[in-house]
Amino acid sequence: MLQVSGLSGGYGDIRVLWDVDLRVRPGRVTAVLGRNGAGKTSLLNAVAGFPPGVTGGTITFDGRDVTGMAPHRRVRAGLGYVQEGKQVFRQRTVEDNLLLGGFTLARSGLGRWTGGRKRSPARREALDRQYERFPMLAERRHTVAGSLSGGQQQMLAIAQALMPAPRLLMLDEPSAGLAPVIAAEVFEMITVLRADGLSILLVEQVVEYAMRVADDVAVVDNGRIAAAGDARSFDDTAVINEIYLGAGSR
């Protein structure tokens, strides 16, 4: 599904990714663990086409080399990305947010310039699908996104990314800033999505949540892959000690 090989990159002079190899297999959840500043978000950003700039290595998605591709074209290729920090359009309504999520479903040519927001049947269908999956959003479709609670915004961000029916969904810290009950709901949703056959690349700080859904695990430290493997063969306690309390590095 997704194959990252020997990826290096950085912001200007500051290098943040060193020779990273990562593989996401179809229909599985791959969790990337690591302490803050380890390079988890940088890795997702690079895969999605955002800075840090890639200085070496390749990113292959569905057999296609997407390494130098513009971010919007990666979305069209089927790569969905839910950024860290509930990046919804706060001044727009829930429904507008979802419709924007389905931007790539728009008709080509003139239709997109003049077409009403809901004219495209494909977008309409996608919208109905998300409302079905997230009834809470259907109830609040005309609410301005900025006035939703944190958990609702996170759900909206996920629903937005699901609009164009991606084949791989990348989630960056979906539990950040959420109460445990709400975070549990978010992860419940991830389980549902996996059951639907979606491949998922998950970055998560809370090991327990990540382990609940992960099939494969990769541990990032100092911009490098420190360990990778099947989730069942991973010992949580060792992982916790290793990456959060720095038992290994200090």
Binding site: H72, R76, Y81, F103
Partner: peptide, 18 residues
């Protein structure tokens, strides 16, 4: 709508395929 969204949050707009 996409134009308004881009004005509000450029990177999020890109991540939505704009």
């Amino acid at each position: 709508l996409a134009s308004l969204a881009t004005a509000e949050n450029r990177q999020a707009a890109q991540a939505r395929g704009l």
